[in-house]
Design a protein around this nucleic acid. Structure first.
Length: 553
DNA sequence: GTAGGGTTAG
């Protein structure tokens, strides 16, 4: 009797559309007091409700109090932890479930697979894949789409494709997962190929499909393809979906077609944070930082709220154009919205102020940042280096180590840059060795460029040449280019010839380097070589070659 | 007897 009344109360409470957390808690406490065990059906609904309100603790309490745990009850608690990205708790519960009487179903596996890929736990992914197969769910649509997505997100597109190919008649979601998988991995050609196969087989694409293809288009050379896909969306009226139009907008941003991006933006009835961000970062990437700042301001004026990522981006735009007024205004916005101590924001501030000519303010922000991390240190070290204060930069590096932080590739890039600016050859050599030997960081293009400039400008051309030769293939042309400009400074024609051979082997079309080399030849009196190079550069275009005019033969 | 659950943009 009491039990059924209880249930009726629950049904009544839960059927009311807008519940509040205190209401539900009160109800929960009441049930606990009566020592009635909650029916698994209601337990599931309550756990989901708690999870939605970010009250994991109550969700867990309720779960613990529920003796009869159906697969729904288990899934709701595992999902609650997974969505809060509590990897270890969720995995612990998943394993507990496997030891219980209730076996995981396809939705449990799907949830855990997503959790593994979000945390880049490839071993876990493989393990769960194995369990899926053992459970006889190797051909289940839900499991397979989760597997395809998870493998693609950790960059294992081959495995994703194998899972997909194992399903005889994929449904729309599974098609979408594999198409977007290729998009995630930047393999737009394969994505497009599958898209046509899917259409041949009579599967009607939806918004997810198009978004999947569009995400793969990042190269500015793909404008025509992007426009074609946009046209397809218009034809199928898929552009009405906010997700699709937002993806198209950010595609145009990535393709550096800001006019098209703006046109799409104007058609949106309610641009959200992500669409504003796509547009603003798009302008910034195109080098139109002033426009990026204008749109940032428009967004705020229209009542939009920026998050730390966008604030950091707007600060970077201010730094690029050295507009301290805009930068400090955004700083004020960040303080008012309690984002000033966010790691991304403070690192952007530490970078912005010095670039606008206010090194002191950058240092001040750095000193007042409560939870400094390696990114904040990198910003301040590189600023000090740019101001020609290498020993202060080195001290900061010492402070970083003193705080128990681990330097990364950007730290060393900033340090080597400081050395290069100040011509500190020995310090540069030391940092380069420490980077690889002590901190096991593999030298990247940036590091080689700084080292080559440092050694080359100091006249150590041989050492610089040997260093580049020791770099793993393929060597970025920028590195050889840096060495070539050092040969120019020291008028070392012999080495310039060597470098040119290596350089043009990789980058035949790079005019800047040919110009540089012809200058070297010209100053050495090798007019014919210089002239030949110049003809190569012009290649039919009537362009006056800079730097040669004064030695015109 | 009831239920949710796999794929979307910076």
């Amino acid at each position: 009797m009491r039990c059924s009344t209880q249930l009726q109360v629950l049904v009544f409470q839960l059927s009311k559309s807008r519940q509040t957390l205190p209401n539900i808690k009160q109800l929960h406490a009441f049930i606990a007091k009566t020592h009635l065990s909650i029916d698994p059906f209601y337990a599931t609904r309550l756990i989901r409700f708690y999870a939605l309100n970010n009250d994991l603790e109550s969700a867990r309490h309720l779960f613990d109090e529920t003796p009869h745990r159906t697969v729904y009850v288990w899934n709701s608690i595992i999902r609650a932890y997974a969505q809060a990205n509590k990897f270890h708790d969720a995995m612990w519960l998943f394993n507990a479930m496997r030891g219980s009487e209730t076996m995981p179903d396809n939705f449990t596996f799907a949830c855990v697979l997503r959790l593994c890929c979000e945390n880049f736990v490839v071993g876990g992914l493989r393990g769960v894949h194995g369990s899926v197969v053992v459970a006889g769910l190797g051909w289940d649509y839900v499991c397979c789409s989760a597997l395809v997505n998870a493998y693609a997100r950790v960059g294992m597109i081959g495995d994703a494709r194998r899972v997909f190919s194992g399903v005889r008649e994929p449904d729309l979601v599974l098609w979408n997962s594999v198409v977007s998988g290729y998009g995630i991995c930047g393999k737009w050609e394969e994505g497009l190929e599958l898209f046509s196969v899917m259409r041949i087989r009579g599967i009607r694409p939806d918004g997810y499909t198009l978004v999947g293809i569009i995400t793969g288009l990042g190269d500015p050379g793909l404008v025509r393809i992007g426009q074609g896909i946009h046209g397809f969306c218009l034809k199928c009226s898929l552009d009405c979906s906010p997700h699709v139009s937002s993806a198209i907008l950010s595609m145009y941003s990535r393709l550096m077609c800001m006019d098209s991006a703006c046109r799409v933006f104007d058609t949106l009835c309610q641009p959200d944070l992500v669409t504003w961000s796509s547009l603003i970062t798009g302008f910034s990437q195109c080098g139109d930082n002033k426009m990026a700042l204008v749109f940032f301001r428009n967004m705020i004026m229209e009542g939009g709220k920026a998050d730390p990522i966008l604030i950091a981006c707007a600060l970077a735009a201010s730094a690029q154009v050295a507009m301290v007024g805009a930068g400090s205004e955004i700083h004020g916005y960040a303080i008012r919205h309690d984002y000033a101590s966010d790691v991304m924001v403070s690192a952007a501030l530490i970078d912005m102020y010095p670039k606008c000519g206010f090194l002191g303010l950058g240092i001040q922000v750095f000193r007042y940042t409560p939870r400094r991390n390696v990114v904040s240190f990198n910003s301040i070290i590189s600023s000090l280096g740019l101001y020609g204060l290498p020993s202060e930069a080195f001290d900061m590096f010492g402070e970083l180590l003193g705080e128990g932080l681990k330097p990364d590739e950007y730290t060393f890039s900033a340090l080597l840059c400081s050395c290069s600016h100040a011509g500190l050859v020995n310090d540069g050599r030391r940092f380069f060795t420490r980077m690889t030997d002590e901190f096991s960081i593999i030298a990247k293009t940036d590091h080689y460029v700084h080292m080559v400039k440092l050694l080359g400008m100091a006249g150590e051309l041989e050492e610089a040449y040997n260093l580049v030769q020791s770099a793993p293939e393929p060597v970025d042309p920028e590195i050889w280019g840096a060495l070539l400009s050092c040969c120019d400074v020291h008028k070392n024609t012999e080495m310039a010839d060597n470098v040119a051979q290596r350089l043009f082997g990789i980058e035949p079309g790079k005019d800047t380097y040919r110009v540089m080399l012809s200058n070297i030849y010209a100053s050495d009196g090798r007019w014919d070589d210089a002239k030949q190079l110049r003809d190569n550069v012009i290649g039919g275009r009537q362009k006056k070659m800079p730097g040669l005019s004064w030695t015109e033969v």
